[in-house]
Design a protein around this nucleic acid. Structure first.
Lengths: 345, 345
DNA sequence: CTGAAAGCGCTAACAG
DNA sequence: CTGTTAGCGCTTTCAG
């Protein structure tokens, strides 16, 4: 063995890729370097500074895979977006994307990284187990229950660090954060009726559980007030939606004077079709949306809608997840929606 | 040493967490299990099936951290969104979020996972090196150059697997995918002038390099045609933008009859302010946007705008990155924008 | 305060 | 076709 030929001109040229490399040129052991770089308590200040200097000089970064393997935690939270019904569009759905943005903020702030996975349950039965079992994430946030309520329930029993954005149902086992959709539906229907509508329609797919709850709330109010309400199914992707809505509008003309749209996106499209058919809003037909996206205040006329607090939702998701990571079995969080009165109803 | 006390009632109760566990109860070696689960070539079919059965029965998933450490690749692509000027809003900017959605699609399809990181360069000088050097990702996609052009350039010299969404500049060193913003700016200005505008304004921040290029293109055309053009700076966050635009509108009233908005989001807000001031579009004032977001066809009147092909952009980013992962030093990809003629100009 | 040593769980030669 | 062996690069007792 040649002796440690350290202090020659080649020193700074040598690329230092491991703790051991760095240790060698610092003349200490790998353990010490590890401790120093971790800011660990009991390392001589001189030694630490020296090590830090060398690390900086060589642009050294400890290998995270090794670190994570050793420590048995990843510092990564998985965020899954299941694309159930409307495969193509959901991921670019403005609401979910905005929620994702806030989630990224919150997680970053708490020192976690975010691993995004778009899943198509229909093509991959096992999506949730795989994500969880991948060993890549410390916990999972699922954005939207889609049509996967049961699968999520199944998993929840055996896996604590998971929180889901979606609808809350009496007695469910998975921890969910979401708006009170049923209440939101009630608010919408109440407003529509209060502003004079005599016959309602719910515009949107009623399969997704969140939408179903919105519709159910509206139905409850409608029944109580003795007005009719009918479902008008649509898809989420804007291209097809336009035609679908136009078709619905033709069919209901004169029969419906109050529309509750499942989302603002649908409401905005509807508003446009209404305009093209020359229907006056809110004169001849009233409309209420759901979400309160930024666009909603920009439409003509500005959209009356039911607001979900996205930032609060993201905060709640992260907060509950972190507590679950600590072992706490947290309750679900149901946020109250608020009616935002503008000019369409 | 006790002999392998395997086949007793406890067998199926024992939780199998490692290859070794599984190997023990299958009566083979860890190596074989590894090969079997990897679908590797030369494992006896019987053996493989047995191993797969046991794995399924116990819900076993190999630990990815260990695997990745060993194989020196992560199967993860990092996606960074630098928040330069307008810290708060950019991440929920519709355009970037839509691009992110498509990226998620593309990467998933190619078998990669996506690690999302929102960075605030002002608070973290070292963001890009850290992301790259973290050992968590095989390659990096940066969404938007923000005000970080120079930093990205610096890094590009020493790090191949990086592709950036943004503007292309003659002689730059990093690989970029993006629209020809300058050309887009020309198209916008030409259209404005062709539809009768005599004095133009560019509505939006001119600092970000992409916006600067759009403005430059418009300026070039304006100069050639002998019409004036002035910049009207705004922020991106919708709350403040409304007021800012209103203020600008007050100041330019009667002096400007053609507005080129840096993005559709800005254009939509502008349209609304214009309406509130009772200005007729396109009668009194014309307006052209940029991006062609879904909302743009829903405004009243529908927005004339310069279209960026987001899906093609995402495809290009992933495609180039994968080639760089193979060692190829790819060229940048500049996509042609298209004028979408609607009713505002 | 620091070094030595023992793995985290998996994969990939290398032998059989 | 399968077992054995030797690490990937880091963290963490356990001794000094």
């Amino acid at each position: 063995m040649a002796d440690t030929d350290v202090q020659n001109g080649a020193e700074s040229a040598a690329k230092v890729r491991t703790l051991a490399d760095l240790a060698r040129i610092a003349g200490v052991s790998a353990g010490t370097v590890s401790r120093a770089l971790a800011g660990n308590s009991l390392v001589n200040t001189k030694t630490r500074e020296k090590i830090e200097a060398i690390a900086r000089e060589h642009g050294f970064r400890p290998n995270q895979m090794a670190s994570k393997l050793r420590r048995q935690k990843t510092g990564v939270i998985g965020v899954a977006i299941p694309l159930g019904h409307d495969v193509r569009q959901q991921i670019s759905d403005t609401f979910f994307m905005t929620l994702l943005g806030y989630l990224a903020d919150e997680l970053t702030e708490k020192g976690y990284d975010l691993m995004l996975r778009r899943v198509i349950p229909a093509q991959d039965e096992d999506w949730l187990d795989r994500f969880i079992g991948s060993g890549m994430v410390d916990g999972v946030i699922v954005i939207g229950q889609s049509d996967q309520f049961e699968r999520i329930e199944d998993v929840a029993d055996g896996y604590l660090p998971m929180v889901v954005w979606g609808n809350h149902q009496e007695g469910q086992r998975h921890c969910v954060v979401g708006s009170n959709n049923r209440l939101g539906g009630k608010l919408a229907a109440e407003r529509l009726i209060a502003s004079g509508a005599k016959s309602l329609a719910f515009l949107g797919d009623t399969q997704p559980i969140e939408f179903a709850a919105r519709y159910a709330g509206a139905k409850e109010v409608a029944a109580k007030m003795g007005v009719a309400i009918r479902p008008l199914p649509t898809h989420l992707s804007p291209e097809r939606t336009g035609e679908e809505i136009a078709k619905h509008l033709r069919e209901i003309e004169g029969k419906v004077d109050g529309i509750f749209a499942a989302t603002d996106t649908i409401a905005v499209t509807c508003l446009k079709e209404l305009r093209e058919r020359g229907m006056e809003v809110p004169g001849q037909i009233k409309i209420v949306g759901f979400d309160d996206l930024p666009i909603s205040s920009q439409t003509m006329p500005p959209l009356t809608t039911v607001r979900q607090d996205i930032a609060a939702g993201a905060k709640g998701l992260v907060d509950l997840l972190l507590r679950r990571l600590e072992g706490e079995d947290t309750e679900s969080l149901v946020l109250p929606p608020h009616l935002v009165l503008r000019e369409t109803a």
